[in-house]
Simulated scan of single mutants.
Amino acid sequence: MSYRIIICGFFCLMLQSAPEKKSFVRIDDQRGYRYIFTNSIPNHLHGSFPNRNNPNRISKIKRVYKVKSKPLVAKNTVPVAHYLFGVAINGIPFDPGTAEFWQRNRHSGWRYEALSGKINLGLDMNNAHVQPNGMYHYHGIPWQWLTKKVTTPDVTLVGYAADGFPIYALYGYKNNEISKMRSSYKIKKGMRKSGPRGYYDGTFVADYIYAANTGDLDECNGKFGVTPEYPQGTYHYYLTEDFPFVPRFFKGTPDFTFKKQKKGHRPQKSLSSQEKLLGKHFRHCRYCHELIRNNNLRIGRPPQWHKVPSAILQKIKTHAKNQQD
């Protein structure tokens, strides 16, 4: 237990909760494909959601993920970007990326790293939290689930990537022995020349660089080799203690069932001038954010004001007007 607290430290200071709803997952192999049926409910203890830094509640979301039973390596690596990286054998997805950027500018190129310790996203003891749509998902090694599943170091299958290749956690075979796998990513040396400036320190994804042959794994945080499930050998990924934690590139071609679903927000040009001013105020107003969180509201980004009860919306409008005056 103690090492899990050290790893999670900054993120896990919240109560553990047993699943409120029953988890469901089924994995079927049919005609060259592997189908993972899930209701997206975790089958293990999880943090308390909503919480101060993650205002979303876990919801039952029925999904069917599809991957090739015998995946092929693609000509070029594919960034995870707009895909979920994969899905655990318990039906919970792996999603390493965050929606948070330096100065809230997603065009800046400076995306915050979820497990940097520099930003609090309300993650629990499984390095997980909840999307606005209610989807519980992992940003790193799901420690509570994994340590219940495996009590001694072992080569443990934990899921399948969107391209079909298997995902293992922490340990793999090296020189015919079970060893902890080391990633080949390092923090860059020196100072950032743009954006937030300052020294590279792992706060942002762009603070890291792939340094070939410095670890056990390639740019996709995987390697070719044998595993208990694939005695003839296969390409396979690893979840690691260090960056990238969850791989950021695919070795194969991801299936469309892992594509992140975008909600249909109205384009910015259709917003009224009042809505634009309200949105601008809301981005920087701690009082208004607390108001939304305390009422367990999910209003999206940019804010969809029609989802806010009139009494609360009026409070936000009044606060915005008072701040402007």
Results as ranks from 00 to 15, higher is better:
73 V>H: 00
149 K>Q: 14
68 K>G: 00
314 Q>S: 12
161 A>Y: 00
123 L>H: 05
142 P>K: 11
191 M>L: 12
184 S>T: 10
91 G>P: 09
264 G>D: 12
321 K>S: 11
322 N>M: 10
243 F>V: 14
285 C>R: 08
277 L>Q: 13
220 C>S: 15
218 D>T: 10
210 Y>K: 09
77 T>F: 02
66 K>E: 00
130 V>G: 08
175 N>F: 11
205 V>M: 01
85 F>Q: 02
1 M>H: 09
301 R>H: 08
320 A>R: 00
251 K>P: 01
235 Y>V: 04
62 K>Q: 13
128 A>R: 03
2 S>E: 15
63 R>V: 05
111 R>D: 00
203 T>G: 02
44 H>V: 13
49 F>I: 07
240 T>F: 00
230 Y>I: 00
123 L>A: 07
206 A>G: 04
298 R>W: 09
181 M>H: 02
180 K>H: 12
72 L>V: 03
3 Y>R: 12
258 F>E: 07
248 R>D: 05
319 H>Q: 13
309 P>G: 06
60 K>C: 12
295 N>Q: 10
81 A>P: 03
168 Y>K: 00
118 K>H: 14
15 L>F: 02
18 A>Y: 10
36 I>D: 05
104 R>L: 14
20 E>Y: 05
49 F>R: 08
254 P>F: 03
117 G>R: 13
97 G>K: 02
68 K>M: 02
273 S>N: 03
103 Q>K: 15
77 T>H: 07
325 D>T: 11
314 Q>R: 12
179 S>Q: 11
253 T>R: 15
275 E>Q: 14
86 G>E: 05
126 N>Y: 06
200 Y>S: 13
53 N>H: 02
39 N>M: 12
104 R>D: 14
178 I>M: 06
48 S>C: 03
127 N>K: 06
73 V>G: 00
57 R>N: 05
152 T>V: 15
237 Y>G: 01
172 G>C: 02
